[in-house]
Design a binder for these strands. Structure first.
Length: 295
DNA sequence: GAACCGTGGGT
DNA sequence: TACCCAAGGTT
């Protein structure tokens, strides 16, 4: 054994205990189901927009079996405008699988979690670590950015790679409980201090050990991400169509959807078809359209 | 690996 | 105003 050295975890774990935001899904007593719901809602959606819907969901559907019993239409309405509604559909399907195949208990095993709809590399490990206390690396966009800067000395994380898991696993303390806290701390640092656009290095607990800082904060290689377009995209049109159906009490005539996008009828038709393919919309025998399972 | 999938707040 | 970005997953 050589001389003991201060690790990133030695600094970040205490920092997290002192500075962590009081988010509802972090409170004692939160179930694994509650953690899973929060993780799905937080996929590409900011924390501030998730807090209220999360509370409402857990009150209405406190267990997977409760949500599994609800029609998909109600799940989509409760999802509201959180975005990417396929996430809601997959969460509904995951709840049905958990209720039917796992005794209404959210699995703790990463592989089993990954086999559920809508649960990928990140979410499976987040649930394993934050809900079940396992010592597994949890790598999201925040963690990749913190590791890129503090450890690798780069301005930004590149594209996600399989290597990310090993890079992060190396930072976890041996103690299982501390490892989960470290993962939460890395995410918290990336979300509140080591942010993408204008990092607050003056307030950073690890700036003294940061490789990017040591190198003089070199600039990145330009835009790491492609600009997201929005106006006129299929995503916008699909959003408009679904918004009509969410706002209606039941099935609507085709004309109601036509009115939602007059700019380009061909695009509107194509988007409606893709929503049908995705299972986000259904058509009744009488020609009207509705949310799935509604009738 | 890249494109696609919503929505809205921050700068 | 435009553009950036957000606790990703699936194809």
């Amino acid at each position: 054994m050589g001389p003991t050295t201060t690790t990133l975890a030695d600094v970040l774990v205490p920092w997290f205990r002192a500075h962590a935001r009081d988010l509802p899904w972090r409170r004692p007593g939160t179930t694994a189901w509650g953690v899973l719901v929060s993780e799905i809602m937080l996929q590409q959606t900011p924390v501030a927009r998730v807090e209220e819907p999360w509370r409402a969901w857990l009150e209405r559907w406190p267990r997977p079996s409760a949500m599994a019993a609800a029609p998909a239409s109600e799940v989509l309405r409760a999802w509201g405008k959180l975005g990417y509604p396929r996430r809601a559909l997959r969460l509904h399907a995951a709840a049905q699988a958990i209720a039917a195949d796992h005794g209404d208990v959210v699995p703790a095993d990463v592989e089993t979690l990954e086999s559920l709809p809508g649960i990928g590399t990140y979410t499976a490990r987040a649930v394993a670590a934050f809900a079940h206390g396992q010592r597994v690396p949890v790598v999201d966009t925040n963690v990749r950015r913190v590791v890129a800067r503090a450890v690798l000395g780069r301005a930004d994380a590149g594209a996600a790679a399989s290597r990310d898991l090993a890079d992060t696993e190396a930072l976890l303390p041996d103690d299982t409980a501390d490892a989960a806290t470290m993962s939460a701390a890395l995410m918290e640092l990336g979300a509140t201090v080591c942010v993408a656009r204008t990092p607050r290095c003056a307030d950073c607990p690890v700036s003294g050990a940061c490789a990017w800082q040591r190198l003089g904060r070199p600039a990145g290689d330009g835009p790491a991400r492609k600009a997201q377009r929005w106006a006129g995209t299929d995503r916008q049109v699909r959003g408009r169509l679904l918004d009509v159906l969410r706002g209606a009490p039941g099935p609507v005539p085709a004309a109601a959807l036509d009115a939602a996008w007059l700019t380009d009828p061909a695009q509107r038709a194509r988007c409606l078809d893709s929503l049908l393919v995705d299972g986000l919309v259904e058509q009744l025998a009488d020609g009207r359209f509705c949310l799935p399972g509604e009738q």
